[in-house]
Design a protein around this nucleic acid. Structure first.
Length: 572
RNA sequence: GGCUAGGUAGCUCAGCUGGUUAGAGCACAUGACUCAUAAUCAUGGGGUCGGCGGUUCAAGUCCGCCCCUAGCCA
């Protein structure tokens, strides 16, 4: 039994995530976690909300509530949606937790003591009326490039030009609207990534089995232009982890907090500590996942994320860990994803375009979305969600191939033999051929799941379902029954056992349907199949079952058209 | 403009280090079956693998140039 640590990129607190966000990290991470648990491995699956930074403060202000309350509320919303999609986190933490505050300060202190933090004096915009500095989006003005009058301090939304707050014409505070602004000198901490470049570069070069998407992005940032740059890790905000704390190896940073991208990945570790707190375990329980001097040397650590998060996970976070000179666990494998597009354009949180997690669950159960999203995961290229494609996949794969298989075999048995596994008879050559085919396919499926090749795994799983229909079609127990009920009984017995096998194999993709199938078979044994021939004899003659309700309802054309229309515009 | 990743059947995509008549699912056509959510199963039609040139006994697979798409950066 192996020990596997799995983290999903942590979703930002600001609002409900769309399906593109879901399929880019949390959902595939859940698939992998479920599979590894099913194989009997010890799994720690961690996620959290990313709560610090300017957008959270602005969203809270817009909602008219203190940022702490806003975050607490949105955390609950996201937690419930994650549960709705059956994301099986061992813990869903918060980057604003006390654990993360302490760990973030701990890392900063260690980095400072090791000479990887530099104090830099900068000139920034200060608002006299608000009595504070105005970083990034806290300042608005006219874009010097295109003339747009609502350009933000970090970027013009109209022409996309990256800006420095001091570039803006007629700048004003986004908080009060005050134009009484002045440039003041302020001090910030920089993480000296340049001095760690050699170490990081060697480490990336050693990861020859990582997805091209992951290593190409990392190498680009390492080597392009002037190469990896030092990075400011503090901001003039009040919501975040304080930079000045007892024992800090620097002075005069009162009123500043660490930049959200510095503390967010540390939350992976902190959330595991939060898990220990919540389950009343000692520190040793979480440290054995993260400290290579305390048991984590045999842990395999896998991260899941969208491509936009890759630079932080391949460079900044490793720099934080390496620079601490402490024995923290570094990631072993990074699975990254491209983007999912929506009906000819992009999903967009800021524009409210696409289908969001709450909306998705309001129209269909989680399994429908899980199946489509995972079997179309944007692994090698951006992929596209269309309602037609979604409808076809759900109806064909889930309703016709799998759902109908369960339905046809249970109903046939019920009408001819009653609701118990029938006894007697021998299966023939067709069954032997089926078992041989399944043996190959199940092992191939395992291989794809281990390698996190999600689309291939989905294709194999579907082929496994199809094999059951092929068998029934050619064996034709309904015909054999007329001449030889015992021989037909053996076929039905095999068919019923296939339902159990399918439930176990399919659980990572469609956990709810899997549970329904097992419950219909009145079976609690969900042991992962060894030799298929053995796995297909678990339900013995006389074992009672229930004919289940329809597993997957089909999506009608009218429904599809209605949803297509309802979600064509912009979320309000 | 630079960088990265792609451009393979109507659609969504597989095709590792170059090697027999280029594959899958869906869609389409025909047939089989009737246990089942008008479901299932079989067979078939359909592609000059973005374009041009090159290397090679042999290229979708390598090289060069060009066109198109997406993303990132400037």
């Amino acid at each position: 039994m192996a020990r596997i640590l799995i983290t999903s990129a942590i979703p930002y607190i600001n609002g409900i995530k769309h399906l593109g966000n879901l399929v880019g990290s949390q959902l595939p991470a859940d698939l992998y976690a479920r599979y590894m648990r099913a194989r009997g491995h010890e799994v720690m699956f961690i996620c959290a909300t990313d709560e610090h930074g300017t957008p959270a403060e602005l969203a809270a202000a817009k909602a008219g509530m203190p940022v702490e309350h806003y975050c607490a509320e949105m955390h609950e919303v996201q937690k419930n949606l994650a549960a709705g999609f059956r994301l099986s986190f061992d813990h869903f933490g918060r980057s604003s937790s006390g654990r993360n505050h302490r760990l973030t300060q701990h890392f900063a202190k260690a980095l400072g003591e090791n000479g990887f933090i530099e104090e830099v004096a900068e000139r920034q915009v200060f608002s006299v009326a608000d009595n504070r500095f105005l970083p990034d989006r806290y300042i608005e003005g006219t874009c010097p490039n295109c003339g747009y009058d609502k350009a933000r301090g970090d970027q013009c939304e109209n022409c996309t030009k990256q800006l420095d707050p001091t570039d803006l014409i007629n700048p004003r505070s986004a908080i009060s609207g005050s134009t009484e602004l002045e440039i003041r000198e302020t001090k910030h901490l920089y993480l000296k990534q340049k001095s760690l470049k050699g170490e990081i570069s060697a480490w990336i070069d050693s990861k020859t089995d990582w997805p091209i998407l992951t290593t190409s992005i990392a190498k680009k940032w390492l080597n392009d232009g002037e190469g990896l740059q030092d990075r400011g890790i503090t901001r003039d905000l009040s919501w975040g982890v304080p930079v000045q704390f007892p024992g800090a190896p620097w002075q005069g940073m009162e009123g500043k907090v660490f930049y959200v991208w510095f503390d967010a990945p540390i939350e992976y570790i902190a959330a595991t500590a939060e898990w220990a707190d919540a389950t009343e375990e000692p520190d040793a329980a979480w440290e054995r996942w993260w400290r290579t001097d305390k048991g984590a040397q045999d842990v395999r650590y896998v991260q899941f994320m969208g491509k936009d998060n890759v630079p932080f996970h391949t460079l900044s976070f490793p720099a934080t860990i390496m620079g601490s000179r402490e024995p923290w666990k570094l990631v072993d494998y990074i699975k990254s994803f491209n983007y999912l597009n929506y009906d000819g354009g992009q999903f967009s949180t800021s524009q409210g375009r696409g289908v969001f997690m709450d909306q998705a669950l309001s129209i269909l159960p989680a399994d429908y979305w899980r199946w489509w999203l995972l079997s179309h995961a944007p692994e090698n290229a951006d992929s596209e969600f269309t309602w037609e494609n979604f409808q076809v996949s759900v109806n064909k794969d889930l309703a016709d191939v799998l759902g109908n298989f369960v339905s046809r075999i249970t109903k046939f048995c019920r009408s001819k033999y009653g609701e118990a596994v029938p006894a007697g008879g021998q299966t023939g050559e067709r069954a032997a051929a089926l078992i041989e085919e399944l043996e190959g396919r199940v092992r191939a499926y395992e291989g794809h799941m281990e390698a996190m090749e999600i689309r291939k795994a989905a294709t194999e799983l579907r082929a496994i379902w199809v094999a059951g229909n092929e068998y029934l079609q050619s064996a034709a127990p309904w015909t054999v029954f007329k001449e030889d009920p015992e021989r037909a009984a053996a076929m039905v017995r095999l068919g019923l056992n296939l339902i159990r096998l399918y439930a176990i194999l399919s659980e990572p993709f469609i956990p709810d349907a899997s549970a329904k199938m097992l419950s219909a078979m009145k079976c609690t044994d969900r042991t992962w199949p060894g030799p298929v021939a053995e796995a297909l004899t678990v339900l013995e003659p006389g074992h009672a079952f229930e004919t289940p309700e329809v597993l997957f309802a089909k999506i009608a054309d009218e429904e599809r058209e209605e949803w297509q229309k309802r979600f064509s515009g912009v979320r309000t």
